[in-house]
């Protein structure tokens, strides 16, 4: 499985983000690893996203070329799955569930609170590159609705009024499962 988003290190010796050219170069290794495996395209895209944080168009093109598939086909795959992003993402990806259960239990209000708090719209990233706001369609945790997924952690019964606290805990690295324990 690809590494989680938290651990991506663009460069071993510094925090400088990779240029798109450098990403494309690294894509060749990813392609070599996956291209002969059945169903290897999606794992390769996941690996690329976990390494680079997102999938810029040149990366999608390079992976398409490497797999001998058309650019339009691979972009179709990338744009189909909401887990793939073609824009740079923040350190934390916040996905607000708007599946049926979460929706009726206030998912929309949670989303509005996050938009207001972060000052971004869905799909956007805060200027400090800390948070990216996105929506999801059911994470399979309907019994705990409304839920918000931040990177790999599901936060349950999220209350719009306590969004600030949640974000602070996430940023300071305080036990990310606190919310679940409290419930």
């Amino acid at each position: 499985m690809p590494k989680s988003l938290d651990s991506f290190a663009p460069c071993a010796c510094c925090d400088r983000p990779l240029t798109e050219e450098e990403m494309v170069t690294r894509c060749h290794e990813i392609v070599q690893e996956y291209k002969d495996k059945p169903g290897g395209l999606i794992p390769a895209l996941q690996m690329a996203q976990s390494l680079f944080g997102y999938l810029p168009k040149p990366v999608v093109k390079a992976i398409a070329d490497g797999f001998g598939k058309s650019y339009s086909e691979v972009s179709g795959v990338v744009s189909f799955y909401s887990f793939f992003s073609t824009r740079p993402r923040g350190k934390f990806l916040i996905r607000v569930c708007l599946g049926t259960a979460c929706y009726v239990r206030g998912g929309k209000d949670v989303l509005e609170a996050l938009k207001k708090k972060l000052g971004v719209e869905v799909g956007e990233t805060t200027p400090d590159r800390n948070f990216t706001l996105d929506v999801g369609r059911c994470f399979g945790a309907c019994g705990m609705a409304p839920v918000v997924m931040i990177n790999d952690t599901v936060h349950q019964r999220v209350k719009p009024g306590r969004i600030g606290e949640l974000l602070t805990r996430v940023l300071t690295g305080e036990n990310p499962t606190a919310e679940r324990e409290r419930a």
Partner: peptide, 9 residues
């Protein structure tokens, strides 16, 4: 050729 594919969902 593969110029056209469904994009988004």
């Amino acid at each position: 050729v593969g110029a056209l594919f469904p994009q988004n969902r």
